[in-house]
Design a protein around this nucleic acid. Structure first.
Lengths: 340, 340
DNA sequence: ATAATGTTTTTAATCGTTTAACCACAAAGG
DNA sequence: CCTTTGTGGTTAAACGATTAAAAACATTAT
């Protein structure tokens, strides 16, 4: 690798001049500039990033700390982040916490999470990143990032969260949107297959649904709300329960695509036609949604956009560290398929 | 951030001594060592990676160049890579080529790919990475990495490839395995729904199937091989075609899960029971496979393992740059579900 | 006492940049 | 002719570590 010194010697100038040519940090005569440029080309010089970073105290690198890249919406967010950063000439250093195996295990030792997260942060800091984006799947772990951050940090995703500087989607608004979508298509008896009763997304989405129903002057009876565990099987059992009611609903809003798939299976097994006799919608727009019979109308998470916005804001924050906290809720879109 | 100089002053020694304590590069008296250690703890010193890297000419960082993180098996490979590297104290700098949108577009300007790939390599090199892992989805683009590499490089995945230093799975062997699995369960008339006729995976998998059939003394008639385009819809049309034959097969081997799903749908629409009247298997173990009716028996790609092996080998290669090329084929496993 | 030997610690150069401060020179102003 | 003002370039000190080589000191041998 050619160094700046070699270029300088070849062009018959000092390294300072070479540096000024490269960075445009001083006005130089056209002749000198030209001579330096030629020398640079001749020895195929590329600046040493390490030396530069050491000197100026900025690496133009950001760290992205993901809970688990295999998590469903995570890849999309990372994609958005990395594209946006690359466009602005930032490099990305990636660290995966590998939290997926344990994520649903409520009894897992808390210590492990905290240690892993803090180790990750320490690692990124030791790489002298200019900023960090934490890509969460749950909001559960965010409290662990406790030590006062001298490095700018923004949160992405985290399924709707209460952090100050965070980019996510609105569980509530998108559930409300979908409910209005059903209402607009003539449905008045809408049942809900919810997730875990005490989880944040369940609560928020339910709120959205209730709001939309209320605004339309419709009722949401208590026995139209069944709680599942986000898995396929509970989609089936909840649907069975709903069908055994005296007055059955005309639409089922499952809070994720897996439970919607279970619901679809049960309905079909009973010979109920979709969407004629019963409309079904999901949430997440997982791959499975488009291959169900019929293809499932569902809500798509704006993963790329979340990543893009988070990255943009982090860059702002790097340039101006005492920016006020910014929380941005990005709208989801409804993917219309044949199940409504 | 505390520097080594501050630690040295506090401990009343030179920076050289501090460095020796940290790296164990020279034997020092226990008292001095202790004093330095205390000083380090007292000011909460962490070494500056940039300075160190600049001096020793190694960053302990590797670059991972992915064609697109949203690509299906990619996240798993990246997960394996990142875990393995982290375990050995390597940092990972991540660059995404965002090739997905265009991947299936045959008429895309070649230049774009080459430029993007080479820009990615340049970016990683400018970050002074010690080595690079290229995570491919196709083997189509690998030729573009042409400039002679001074940085060690290994390929991961790429759907079976001809590169020298590459980690992937065996299209051929796993297709053969699955065929034997069907044969062992009594099937003698096995039909194939293949992918694009001229694609590498199609050719290899077909080879594997033919080999297994031959070894079992079974025939694979030409009209039992239908070519699709890897999409759901062709799964249906190919199945229709197979069912209209004079002698129908007892098992269908679709070369991916999507086409298998299409096949399943068609069979069910015709009232054919699975697996009693017809067995169906797929390839890829995508999410959809476990939610089909019946759940699909299929082949799982060893994504994590591919990543792990590639990372391990890259580290070897960094320590010993003129290692002979190593190509490793990792076995796939059959995921048994209810469709056989 | 002096030299030889071994142990522990320091000196100072180095990695490849950036950048404030300085210098040389020319043109202009008094 | 002497000062000012500008232009175009250089000098040299950083940034924060590592590491040969030298030095300081203690120990043992002659």
């Amino acid at each position: 690798m050619a160094t700046m010194r070699e270029v300088a010697e070849l062009a018959g100038v000092s390294t300072a001049t070479v540096s000024h040519v490269i960075n445009g940090s001083k006005k130089l005569s056209p002749e000198t500039t030209e001579r330096v440029l030629q020398a640079i080309a001749q020895v195929n010089y590329t600046p040493n990033t390490l030396a530069k970073s050491l000197r100026i105290g900025q690496t133009h690198t950001i760290g992205i700390l993901v809970e688990d890249i295999r998590g469903l919406p995570v890849a999309g967010i990372v994609s958005g982040i990395s594209e946006t950063l690359a466009r602005s000439g930032y490099k990305t250093i990636f660290h995966d916490l590998h939290l997926l195996e344990k994520l649903y295990n409520q009894y897992e030792q808390i210590g492990t999470y905290r240690e892993r997260i803090n180790a990750g942060v320490a690692l990124l800091k030791s790489s002298n990143v200019d900023g960090i984006i934490y890509v969460a799947m749950h909001d559960r772990h965010l409290d662990y990032l406790l030590d006062p951050m001298d490095t700018p940090l923004v949160y992405a995703y985290s399924h709707g969260c209460d952090q100050d500087t965070c980019f996510t989607y609105s569980n509530r608004d998108s559930a409300a949107d979908m409910t209005r979508y059903l209402i607009a298509r003539g449905h008045t008896r809408i049942a809900v297959i919810a997730g875990h009763p005490h989880s944040y997304p369940t609560g928020q989405r339910l709120l959205g649904i209730q709001t939309a129903m209320q605004q339309a002057g419709l009722a949401l009876p208590a026995d139209y709300i069944r709680y599942g565990d986000w898995e396929y099987a509970t989609g089936k059992t909840c649907t069975d329960a709903l069908l055994s009611l005296a007055v059955t609903p005309t639409a089922i809003f499952a809070m994720n695509d897996l439970m919607a798939a279970g619901s679809l299976a049960t309905l079909q097994a009973r010979g109920i036609r979709i969407p004629e006799d019963m409309a079904v919608v999901g949430f997440d727009n997982r791959e499975i949604a488009s291959y169900l019979q019929p293809p499932l109308t569902t809500i798509a998470l704006p993963t790329t956009e979340i990543g893009t916005q988070a990255a943009l804001h982090l860059m702002e924050r790097i340039n101006n560290p005492d920016l006020p906290p910014k929380k941005e809720i990005i709208h989801c879109s409804i993917i219309e398929r044949a199940s409504v």
